[in-house]
Nucleic acid binder design. Structure first.
Length: 249
DNA sequence: TAGGCCATCTGGTCCT
DNA sequence: AGGACCAGATGGCCTA
């Protein structure tokens, strides 16, 4: 799985409870341990008046160890779930996630993506978490821009009375989606201001518009559609064949 | 070897 | 009270 993608496979170090316990016993004794410098003090260690109040019931060493093991397991599970979600996001960003650990990238060789933002790792290497998030954000913004461009074109067609029976779906022309970016940033309501190639958030400033075939955007569970016709992003629309769960919280 | 990235442990805080 | 979430610390692995 993705959590095991790290060559070191660190999970195995603690997969055996005994080893984890050894580590914790060492911690409880008071030595500086491996993970968690902030955790030098064990559960029973905080005794100052300003610290967390003691539990109403003193726990035995075994109970403390069991509790700590339980908490660690939960935290590990939480982080693993987070990594699963991160890998799912990487799969959408297939051209960049081509490490052997990413099953979706099998068969995709290293290649330079023309829209790779500065600072991104070179193609052929697994995307880091931060790169995945940044790229996903840019991709979302680009999709919003494409949608606005499509609306603008439909509006032009509508203004000259051309269309299917002269009718354009109102929803497409309404442009009512809240295409807000992060607070303080621009609102994607004016296509003219955000759709020029120089404004494309995924495109390097000096990258020429080519008519070459785009990289293979496709992943397991993802269907690639024809290219966006706007000619700006040239990124295919992505449709999930299997809707992702919503992870209710 | 330094730096980047990551998994894990841990204590604290917030929420239900 | 218990679980979720967060951030700091630490050590391992990998690459340039």
């Amino acid at each position: 799985m993705q959590a095991m993608s790290s060559p070191g496979c660190r999970e195995q170090a603690e997969s055996s409870p005994q080893q984890g316990m050894r580590r914790m016993v060492k911690l409880a004794v008071g030595g500086s341990m491996g993970g968690g410098g902030a955790g030098v003090v064990g559960l029973q260690g905080l005794q100052g008046p300003q610290r967390v109040p003691r539990p109403s019931r003193e726990l035995s060493v075994e109970e403390q160890q069991e509790l700590r093991r339980k908490i660690n397991s939960r935290e590990r599970k939480r982080m693993q779930d987070l990594n699963v979600a991160m890998d799912a996001l990487r799969e959408v960003m297939v051209p960049y996630s081509s490490s052997p650990s990413s099953s979706s990238a099998v068969g995709i060789g290293p290649q330079q993506h023309p829209y790779l933002p500065p600072g991104m790792p070179p193609a052929g290497r697994r995307l880091s978490k931060i790169s995945t998030l940044v790229l996903a954000r840019n991709y979302i913004l680009l999709l919003g821009s494409s949608l606005q461009e499509m609306r603008r074109l439909l509006g032009e067609v509508s203004s000259v009375g051309v269309g299917i029976n002269g009718n354009i779906p109102r929803l497409l022309l309404a442009g009512g989606w809240p295409l807000l970016t992060t607070p303080g940033q621009f609102l994607l309501t004016s296509p003219d201001t955000h759709l020029s190639p120089s404004k494309c958030s995924l495109m390097p400033q000096n990258a020429p518009l080519t008519q070459e075939e785009p990289p293979a955007w496709g992943a397991r569970g993802v269907t690639t559609m024809p290219l966006c016709p706007c000619g700006v992003c040239r990124i295919p629309r992505v449709v999930h064949s299997t809707p992702a769960p919503r992870f209710p919280k």
